[in-house]
Simulated scan of single mutants.
Amino acid sequence: MTREVGAAGRFVRQANRFATPFGDGPGALPIEPGRYRLLWTPICPWAHRSVIVRRVLGLESVISLGTAHPIRTADGWEFSRDPGGVDPVLGIRYLTELYRATDPDYEGRATVPAVADVNTGTVVNNDYFRLTNYLETVWKPFHRSYAPDLYPESLRDEIDALNQVLFDDVNNGVYKCGFARSQAAYEEAFDRLFARLDQLNDRLATRRYLLGDRLTDSDVRLYVTLVRFDAAYYWAFRTNLRRIVDYPHLWAYARDLYQSYGFGDTTDFHAIKQGYAHVVASQDQFAIIPQGPDRSAWLTAHGRERLGGDS
Rank of each mutant, 00 (worst) to 15 (best):
T2A: 12
R13D: 05
R17H: 06
R17V: 14
G27H: 05
Y36W: 03
I43Q: 09
P45H: 02
V51H: 04
R54P: 12
V56E: 04
L57K: 02
E60Q: 14
T73A: 11
G91Q: 07
R93E: 04
L95G: 00
Y99I: 02
D103H: 01
Y106W: 09
Y106P: 05
R109T: 01
R109Y: 04
A110S: 06
P113N: 00
D117S: 07
V118K: 00
N119R: 15
G121F: 13
T122H: 09
V123D: 04
W139F: 06
K140A: 09
K140F: 07
F142S: 05
R144M: 01
A147W: 08
P152M: 07
L162P: 03
V165Y: 06
L166N: 01
F167Y: 09
D169H: 13
V170Q: 00
N171I: 14
V174R: 00
Y175E: 02
R181N: 08
Q183Y: 13
Q183M: 14
E187Q: 15
E188K: 07
R196M: 15
Q199E: 14
D202N: 08
D202C: 13
R207D: 08
G212D: 04
L222T: 03
Y223P: 00
F229N: 02
A232G: 04
N240T: 13
N240G: 08
V245K: 11
Y247P: 00
L250G: 04
A254R: 07
A254M: 12
A254G: 09
R255A: 10
Y258K: 06
G262R: 05
D265K: 02
T266M: 14
D268R: 02
H270F: 11
K273V: 05
G275M: 04
A281M: 14
A281H: 07
A281R: 15
S282M: 12
S282P: 12
Q283N: 12
I288Y: 13
L299T: 07
T300H: 11
T300N: 10
H302V: 07
E305H: 12
E305Q: 14
R306V: 14
D310Y: 12
